[in-house]
């Protein structure tokens, strides 16, 4: 950085000339320091942008080659994790149903009917200008988490699979409560009910609109699954 007077002939703004004299007015060590800072910031910004770009872009030559660098930099804080409407918007209503077996006081057990928990969310959202995350995201995203970490037969993949199972159980128990139909809840079972959205009436598409159920195994309820028993 040389004295500015020679570098900025005819600057169009007094402010710029002023600032340039500002740098030029610094001592040599200070100018070197500023130069290093400019370099550091430039490299830092370029690196950050490159990493974030590679994480969001589709898998490609570069992002595959440097996957470990990209991942270790971007995760967990710089992640971008939503693709609600891309490449295609969700085209089916995914509902989560649950039922329970309860132990009656007379010693008998009873299996309740299926309860549509998502429909309860839907009711809470109807006419609500600002739905809560507990209504709009909690069960919906918990189920996505569960499905992503289980195979078709309901077997969990590793830690995340087990965590998602316990999470779903706790959501169900929060909504059922430990007492149901005059008995205490011993086991719960969930299923998903997936109903495709009917094609628009102006299109000629035909679609099978029947609801597909995916029933998960029965789960034993422990005190850790109850609200308050979570530590």
């Amino acid at each position: 950085m040389e004295p500015a007077a020679h570098q900025v002939p005819g600057t169009d703004s007094a402010g710029e000339a002023d600032g340039m004299r500002g740098i030029a007015a610094l001592s040599l060590p200070a100018r070197i320091f500023v130069a290093i800072a400019v370099a550091v910031v430039t490299v830092g910004v370029a690196f950050h942008v490159a990493m974030v770009f590679l994480q969001t872009a589709p898998d490609n030559t570069i992002s595959k080659r440097h996957a470990d660098v990209v991942d270790s930099y971007v995760y967990p804080e710089f992640e971008r994790n939503w693709k609600l409407f891309a490449p295609n918007p969700l085209q089916q209503n995914v509902a989560v149903h649950a039922r329970a077996t309860v132990a009656k006081e007379d010693g008998g057990t009873e299996t309740t009917g299926w309860v549509n928990l998502s429909a309860m969310d839907g009711e809470a959202i109807d006419g609500n200008p600002a739905p809560s995350h507990t209504q709009q995201n909690e069960l919906r995203r918990a189920w996505e988490f569960y499905v992503d970490n289980h195979d078709e037969k309901g077997k969990p993949y590793g830690l995340r699979g087990r965590l998602s199972e316990q999470y779903i159980k706790r959501i169900v128990m929060l909504r059922f409560g430990s007492e149901l139909n005059g008995g205490s809840v011993e086991r719960v079972q969930v299923r998903s009910a997936v109903t495709p959205v009917a094609p628009p009436k102006w299109s000629e598409e035909k679609a099978d609109l029947r609801t597909q159920y995916s029933v998960q195994p029965w789960w034993q309820v422990t005190s850790a699954d109850l609200p308050g028993g979570a530590k």
């Binding site: 500015a4 900025v8 600057t11 402010g15 600032g19 500002g22």
Partner: peptide, 9 residues
């Protein structure tokens, strides 16, 4: 130099 001025000042 103009860019430098901008981003430093």
């Amino acid at each position: 130099s103009r860019g430098l001025t901008r981003v430093t000042a």
